[in-house]
Design a protein around this nucleic acid. Structure first.
Lengths: 116, 116
DNA sequence: TTCGAAGTTCGGTGAACATCGAACAACCTA
DNA sequence: TAGGTTGTTCGATGTTCACCGAACTTCGAA
């Protein structure tokens, strides 16, 4: 796998980068799945795109500071970086998630674990 | 001047379009100036870009449903569409504006009327 | 009616982005 | 060590974006 730098520092996060990361329905869908704090494995995401595309979107979320990533062997685990985002941009994530839930944004991104 | 359709319908607004519109520092700067509800004239905005670029950014904000526009002769007046945005995406604008104020996003966009 | 002011639109450019399939690297397991 | 699994990276492609200057349209004023 081998990675470049990931998991940017809290004070490097910018509002516009976060909003840009959240301006794609697929990425919003990913964030919604991650919203309850559970850690997900790359392979658990079921999105209608190639795995290279999924990898790209997860990289964007990580670069914006929205997710933590952790590697274990060849596996890659992703978790929402809620504490830092909440500290840096209070209520932003809650507000966006609430709106996304109401409009069902990114509903084409699922996970086998989720019922329905 | 002559315009194509503007001022989109409330229920046409999408979360991702709004977030995309707010993912540019210059546009956030514009929204911050508009935040108190005051109506501004195109020419009153002082941004370090060509007027065609400013026109473009204002069009993006309008297309996303963030602003109202009104024409009077050759003049074009812009006002924040707060009621509709608040109704459609509760607290989103407040949250983003608060974060933008704290980080002073888009501070390169000013207006002659503003002191300092 | 002639001129200037106010914005929009057009054409072009370089950068960024979403997307894919193929190749690759790292790891685990048989 | 030979294969399979896992996810990243690498071109390549087509789209969108920010940006500019120039041309244009509309209007008001002299």
């Amino acid at each position: 796998m081998r990675h470049a730098d990931r998991n940017p520092d809290v004070d490097q996060l910018t509002l516009t980068d976060v909003l840009a990361a959240l301006s794609d329905p697929l990425r919003v869908g990913l964030v919604r799945l991650l919203a309850d704090g559970e850690e997900f494995n790359f392979g658990e995401f079921d999105a209608p795109v190639a795995k290279s595309t999924l990898s790209h979107h997860l990289k964007v979320l990580n670069a914006a500071g929205l997710t933590w990533r952790r590697e274990e062997g060849t596996r890659c685990f992703i978790r929402l970086r809620r504490e830092d985002i909440d500290a840096r941009f209070p209520h932003l994530l809650d507000t966006v998630l609430a709106a996304a839930d109401r409009d069902d944004v990114g509903n084409h991104v699922t996970t086998p674990g989720a019922a329905c």
